[in-house]
């Protein structure tokens, strides 16, 4: 019989290595880049210590959540341009309710805020699924709504997050090199790993990967997309609370920065904007990289205004390298 393209024999180890490189190569490269940047930082600033490290983790925390929130939706094949305003909403809701209360009260408030903003995220998803209007349009519109609501809750930046609540992220309970801000990140695997292993999590990947095939595989497209938006809302709420903890301030206008930087982080983190491909490790590392750049500039004595520019250039370079691969392969 004719031989066909069907490979039937068990594959040699080399193939498996190639496959691992293809699947996880980007994530490894992002961590390598982060490590390289850290080395450079320490070379520039020999007295880099736990304080600087702590500052970095604090700056990266809200962004990491923003990136993870966006990743949820992008994996399902969508995009959420309202992640930043959702974070701002969580942030100001927390401030309004916590003002002048103790830790226990604040923790209850935090739970309620998580619930509220998760629902807001789910509402994004519900509108998209029900109206069938493209996600980019709906979340663009709802970004106005969440930002407006945030302004209604709090008209201008106001300090007043209880100190005990702030210290959940700001201190270093265990070791100066393991700041609490790093530990708070554990929320991500706590939610993500069980989700990813569940059928619902697989369904989210499935919807992003190939909607038609997902439908034929019996996946409920509407619910899966809605779930992705709801989990995105949850992580955005975490991001808003992280913002409260790290800054102690309620800032109704924090939104725009985190929407854009969140998208930057997932691109850098190797999540395919086409959906269905990527994980959470890459975006988190990318959030650290993006937060490290302004710090490095300051250590170098360069105007931190260059930070935004460099972030933009970095993304352009990263995506162009990705694109170049496609172009070269075609040739």
């Amino acid at each position: 019989m004719a031989s066909t393209a069907v490979a039937e024999a068990p594959r040699p180890a080399g193939f498996r290595f190639g496959r691992a490189a293809r699947r996880y190569g980007w994530t490894v490269a992002v961590y390598a880049l982060l490590a390289l940047l850290m080395v450079i930082t320490i070379a520039i600033k020999p007295d880099y210590g736990s304080f600087e490290w702590n500052t970095l983790t604090l700056a990266a925390l809200p962004l990491a959540f923003a990136a993870v929130a966006q990743t949820m939706v992008v994996l399902s094949g969508g995009i959420d341009l309202s992640v930043g305003p959702l974070m701002a909403l969580a942030n100001v809701l927390a401030l309004r309710a916590m003002l002048g209360h103790d830790l226990n009260y604040s923790l209850v408030v935090a739970l309620i805020v998580l619930l509220e903003v998760t629902l807001a995220g789910a509402l994004n998803g519900a509108i998209i699924v029900v109206t069938r209007v493209p996600d980019i349009v709906i979340t663009l519109a709802t970004s106005f709504i969440w930002a407006g609501l945030a302004l209604l809750v709090l008209a201008k930046p106001t300090p007043g997050i209880p100190l005990d609540f702030q210290n959940l992220a700001q201190g270093s309970t265990f070791s100066p090199w393991v700041p609490n801000a790093l530990l708070v990140l554990l929320v991500i695997p706590l939610v993500w790993i069980p989700l990813r292993r569940s059928r619902a999590g697989l369904a989210i990947y499935a919807v992003g990967s190939d909607r038609n095939a997902a439908f034929r595989s019996g996946v409920n497209l509407g619910w899966s997309r809605l779930l992705a938006y709801a989990v995105c809302g949850f992580f955005a709420a975490c991001g808003g609370l992280a913002l409260s903890m790290t800054t102690g301030v309620g800032t109704p206008l924090a939104g725009t920065y985190y929407t854009l930087s969140g998208v930057s982080a997932i691109v850098l983190g190797g999540v395919s904007l086409a959906g269905g491909r990527g994980g959470m490790l890459g975006p988190v590392a990318a959030a650290y990289i993006l937060s490290l750049i302004p710090a490095v500039l300051i250590y170098l004595g360069i105007d931190p205004n260059y930070g935004q520019m460099i972030q933009g250039v970095l993304i352009v370079i990263v995506v162009m390298i990705g694109g170049l691969g496609v172009v070269l392969r075609r040739a």
């Binding site: 059928r199 697989l202 990947y205 992003g208 190939d210 095939a213 595989s217 019996g218 996946v219």
Partner: peptide, 21 residues
């Protein structure tokens, strides 16, 4: 039904595809 264009999800492993269904 098995269709002309296969309905396996390209970005899940075959094992995950089985789990999904």
């Amino acid at each position: 039904c098995v269709y002309q264009d296969p309905s396996l999800l390209p970005d899940l492993t075959v094992l995950q595809n089985l789990k999904l269904t």
